[in-house]
């Protein structure tokens, strides 16, 4: 694999402002970041440092103001809103801190949603959803409503939902912060073993130092910039602790 073909995400000088005039806040101040295919990258840093803004830009749910950013060779700034929505539907999987499962539909239906958005019929999507739920260890709970599942189980459903359509990029926002230590590790092992592949990239925003060991690289952010990127979590621990 050449250097260029091994890159999943490449951001250079990405700037993002919120608001206008005197009320303008700069969330990203020229972020340079590269994520390789097959890599699990964690974004860490204090609250308000721009982690969530950065994954929003990377996932194509937020427009940047300046700089360049390509995701698997695609630049969202050059796409129409419709094309970007479609691309996101096909290529991005999301895992959220609060799971964001629709409470009134079953686990299998929640998992099947991305396939249905892409036009798959209900029956076929549910069959596939049950297979993916099997992969995350919830094969027998496919009919359960989210409220009938524990937090860890709900996050596993969310992970299944992020994987069902075979996306190339999976972005996770604080996937373990609502879970206890043991469940958090189960979720991370699942993400690492099931979600990560050679042609796929995982970007995880987290404050949770307990899961740093699962990362291939950890990018530490502060005040809208990447301060440093380390491969060994102990290097971070030795310095300023993230999530301070």
């Amino acid at each position: 694999m050449t250097e260029a073909s091994s890159i999943a995400i490449e951001c250079k000088g990405v700037v993002k402002h919120y608001g206008q005039g005197a009320a303008r806040v700069t969330a990203l101040r020229g972020v340079d970041l590269t994520v390789r295919k097959g890599e699990l990258l964690m974004l860490v840093g204090p609250s308000g440092c721009g982690k969530t803004t950065l994954i929003s830009v990377i996932a194509g749910v937020l427009d940047r103001n300046e700089g360049a950013c390509t995701v698997f060779g695609e630049d969202f700034a050059r796409m129409s809103a419709r094309a970007r929505t479609r691309w996101r539907g096909e290529n991005v999987g999301f895992v959220f801190q609060a799971f964001n499962l629709i409470p009134t539909i079953t686990a299998a239906e929640n998992v099947a949603v991305p396939l249905m958005i892409l036009g798959e019929g209900h029956g076929a999507a549910i069959r596939r959803a049950r297979e993916v739920l099997e992969m995350v260890g919830l094969g027998d709970r496919w009919r359960a409503l989210p409220a009938q599942l524990s937090g860890g189980q709900q996050q596993r459903v969310a992970i299944a939902r992020s994987l069902i359509h075979g996306p190339r990029l999976i972005v996770c926002d604080e996937p373990t912060s609502a879970l206890d230590h043991q469940t958090g590790h189960v979720i991370m092992r699942l993400l690492k073993n099931v979600a990560l592949r050679e042609d796929r990239a995982l970007v995880i925003v987290t404050h949770d130092a307990r899961i740093f060991g699962f990362a291939d690289r950890i990018a530490e952010m502060d005040d809208g910039r990447i301060e440093r990127i380390v491969t060994d979590p102990r290097e971070l621990m030795a310095g300023t602790a993230p999530g301070r």
Partner: peptide, 16 residues
């Protein structure tokens, strides 16, 4: 709204 936002993030367009 949060669920509609989630659907939108996951690729559901305005028309849908």
């Amino acid at each position: 709204l949060r669920h509609f936002g989630t659907l939108k993030a996951m690729g559901a367009g305005n028309l849908r």
